[in-house]
């Protein structure tokens, strides 16, 4: 099941979905981002969408949307040219519904992630002068508290929440370690080096089960092998007490499918990836195999894939700005 919209721009960089509150009512809205404009779309009848707010960027281009769960009146975006230079909050003043932007952070921003309970974690700088900060927003997004986490002695590459443990946060580093923080105290709990065969991996999601951490990694540089085909995602089990790890599941493409990981998103137990072939592939991490393949539509390769934060929909984007919404 699909619908489409054209944000009338040729430089689509990201898409997201969130609940947006207007006049006391929350609606499931779509956010589209191009380099110079971010738009908020509200649903109309018969799966049509209407653009309700637009924020323009003339100086620094938009790189990505940073979804922050549990916020209903604010969108966070990262701006920069190749590297992230700013994080901004996009909101509307309550009186006249006029769009405005607030600078949240600037500098050499290496990684960021929106967390449950209206929190945003970001890291700036490299290992010797690295600062890791949590911003907590008020319900209306108007004010914020700030807290620092103890930095590790390695540069953070990505962050990942631990499903079911709101006070735990994972980070991956540029030299192939996984670190764990206690968000309540800011303590750095553990640094665990994982096998070098996982190098340059990105951690998308983590789950705590039976005393073990299960983490989902993607492999942008993984090579095809005869035994495993084309690996795209990997599920790894780590014992946080001993820092020992073992591979549990390798998500490879079905035979006959070509391509490597380009970008992807993991929600609950489903993982979606855009492949270099322009196809989107979806894996069920519980079943352990690829459950759906979405070939390019209208001869246009896919360039973006995101799970909706509001329901079980998949948002698929093409470079020309068209967004397709699929029910999974």
């Amino acid at each position: 099941h699909s619908t489409e919209q054209n944000p009338s721009s040729s430089c689509s960089v990201d898409v997201s979905a969130m609940w947006w509150e207007r006049a006391g009512t929350k609606e499931p809205c779509i956010i589209t981002a191009c380099e110079d404009v971010v738009s908020l779309w509200k649903p109309l009848d018969s799966m049509q969408w209407e653009k309700v707010h637009t924020w323009h960027f003339t100086e620094v281009p938009v790189l990505q949307i940073v979804p922050v769960p549990d916020i209903y009146s604010l969108i966070c975006v990262a701006l920069g040219s190749l590297e992230i230079r700013e994080i901004r909050a996009l909101l509307c003043s309550s009186g006249d519904e006029c769009e405005k932007q607030v600078l949240l952070q600037s500098g050499d921003i290496k990684a960021m992630l929106g967390l449950t309970k209206r929190r945003l974690v970001s890291s700036t700088g490299t290992f010797c002068n690295q600062q890791i900060q949590i911003m907590t927003f008020a319900e209306d997004g108007s004010s914020k508290d700030e807290q620092l986490l103890m930095p590790p002695d390695e540069t953070i590459l990505t962050f990942a929440e631990v499903h079911g443990m709101q006070e735990a946060l994972l980070g991956t580093t540029t030299v192939n370690s996984i670190v764990i923080w206690n968000l309540k105290t800011g303590q750095l709990l553990k640094k665990m080096h994982i096998d070098d065969s996982y190098q340059t991996c990105v951690c998308h999601r983590a789950y705590s089960e039976m005393g073990l951490l299960f983490i989902v990694l993607s492999h942008p540089c993984a090579k095809e092998s005869q035994a495993f085909g084309s690996p795209v995602f990997q599920l790894l089990a780590i014992n946080p007490m001993t820092a020992q790890s073992v591979g549990v599941l390798l998500c490879s493409l079905p035979q006959g499918q070509a391509g490597r990981f380009l970008e992807g998103d993991v929600k609950d137990h489903v993982a979606a990836a855009v492949l270099t072939s322009g196809t989107i592939a979806i894996w069920d991490l519980l079943l352990g195999h690829c459950t759906a393949l979405l070939p390019p539509v209208s001869d246009q390769s896919w360039s973006l894939v995101k799970w909706s934060g509001t329901d079980s929909h998949l948002l698929a984007g093409q470079k020309d700005g068209n967004i397709f919404i699929y029910r999974y």
């Binding site: 735990a168 105290t185 750095l188 014992n239």
Partner: peptide, 23 residues
């Protein structure tokens, strides 16, 4: 490979590591 290779497991790993880590 098996999770038995990972050493002793603690269901309260988060609390245990928090009590051991520097503040």
């Amino acid at each position: 490979c098996s999770t038995a290779d990972l050493g002793p497991i603690s269901l309260n790993w988060f609390e245990e590591l928090s009590s051991e880590a520097p503040p």
